[in-house]
Amino acid sequence: MRKAKRIATYTFLSVASIVSIFPFLWMLVSMTNKSVDVTKGRLLPGTHLLENLKALFDTVDMGTALVNSTIIAVITTFLTLLIGSLAGYGFEIYRTPGKDRVFNLLLLSMMIPFAAIMIPLYRLFGGLPFFGIDTLAAAILPTIITAFFIFFFRQNTKMFAKELVEAGRIDGLSELGIFFRIYLPTMKTSYAAAAIIAFMNSWNNYLWPLVILQSPEKQTIPLLISNLGAGYSPDYGLIMSAIVIATLPTAIVFFVMQKHFVAGMMGSVKG
């Protein structure tokens, strides 16, 4: 009986994992095939890998796009974490009148779809002198303050022992000192989890970079891939190679931080 149950469990899990792995497998296999074979649905590895990669690096400036995406993602992640955690910490630790009302308003802002604020934002950046349209800074700035991360850090701060704050104050640590020297090191797992989410969001962000970045040398990876698929006769082998390369950094970030990620997410649920 118990064995039967086990078999059932493993069968189900195997099927589920095949279903979720299949797209990745298909992506990797397609990377080695000619476009014609990809559209025909060939599932066996082919011999066209080097040709695809060569064609990819010949036709588009993959290097520049990777550098741009990396700059944007790293700075965005750093600033998002800094601002989000400072705000989340502040909301949880300090007692201010009307604090919860402000926080609720902030949460409400999560309901507004980005498309709704895109046009005003574009107008705003059109009027800025140094961070204007077609700068990487303009691609970064609107994405660094998000209600989600403030919420995330506030939830996580609930687990943080308030006594440590008291202890820090008694020992004469400044408020920022407490944050940077006590809070930050103890909340490492939360930061790791948030870093993965922020990095992935930024890496895959499409709509805002699309409208705000104009010149080819500012292009990010998702924009480049979108261009590749736009022709009347798209080369699917080449597109798959680009997608594999674009997926690698997020995969690496995830695997490096996986342990912390799980711990951090557990924390936010428990809180």
Binding site: I119, P120, Y122, L207, V211, P216, N227, G229, A230
Partner: peptide, 17 residues
């Protein structure tokens, strides 16, 4: 070079702003 849908999106955003 931009995808056609992307050009439509960019033009609409820029012109309506």
């Amino acid at each position: 070079e931009n995808a056609q849908d992307d050009i439509v999106q960019k033009l609409n955003t820029g012109l309506s702003s």
